[in-house]
Simulated assay, not measured.
Amino acid sequence: MSPFRWSAAALAATLAAFAVAQTSPATPAPVTATPATPVQAAPPTYAQVGALLEARCTSCHRPGGIAPFALTTYEQVAPRAQQIAAVTAARIMPPWPPGPRTPKLKYARTLSDADLKLLADWAAAGAPDTPPATQPESRP
């Protein structure tokens, strides 16, 4: 038989006293790391959107082009940001008549899902311009 016999009440009282001693005001509380807040990516700017438009849209959307309006400058594009996001998400633009069975074409005028997200994110952010030091050159 053990020389230390604890009654349930004595054991509970000892554990409670130990718990109180561990969290008393004199004892500093343990430091817990705060969860890292996710870093939000900056919204896309016209530099990225302008490069995409230059590659995929301005062959038609340029002054004197077959499209009804130009998309070669920020001033021309920004007021149409929501419209651009909507018609590209609906796959109305760029107009591309070949169907899904058409073999892959070298100069296909399509937008990837990443391109569509870029346009949608830019429009949702309020069509931010590019800081002046990084403005892309627009062609006439």
Rank of each mutant, 00 (worst) to 15 (best):
Q82H: 07
T45F: 13
F18A: 15
S24G: 14
Y46N: 02
P100S: 12
V49L: 04
W96N: 12
A81Q: 08
Q22R: 12
A47T: 02
P98F: 13
L105F: 15
C60I: 08
K117E: 11
Q40S: 13
I92H: 12
S112P: 15
W96P: 04
V20S: 04
Y74H: 11
V31H: 11
T32H: 12
L111P: 01
D115F: 05
P94H: 06
M93A: 11
R80F: 14
E75D: 15
C60W: 15
A29M: 11
V39I: 14
P79N: 14
W122E: 04
S59F: 13
A81E: 05
S112I: 12
A33W: 03
P97H: 09
R62N: 13
T72N: 03
L111C: 02
P28Q: 07
R109T: 11
R80H: 13
P43V: 08
A29L: 13
P38Y: 09
A90K: 04
T34R: 03
A89D: 00
P44G: 06
P103G: 06
R91D: 02
S59C: 07
P94F: 11
M93R: 02
T58Y: 07
A19Q: 10
Q76N: 12
A29D: 14
R109G: 12
P100C: 05
P35R: 09
V87D: 04
R91L: 00
Q40H: 14
D121W: 03
H61Q: 12
Y46M: 00
G65E: 05
A78C: 01
A36M: 08
A26R: 13
A108Q: 14
L119D: 08
V49S: 03
T23P: 03
F18E: 10
A85V: 01
S24T: 09
R56Y: 01
A85I: 04
Y74T: 04
T73K: 08
T110Y: 06
P98N: 10
T32A: 07
Q83R: 15
A70S: 13
P38C: 01
C57K: 07
V49R: 00
S59R: 12
L53N: 02
L52N: 01
L53W: 09
I84Q: 06
G50E: 09
A17H: 14
E75P: 09
T27Y: 14
R109V: 02
W96Q: 10
L52P: 00
A78M: 01
P43A: 10
A124G: 10
A29Q: 14
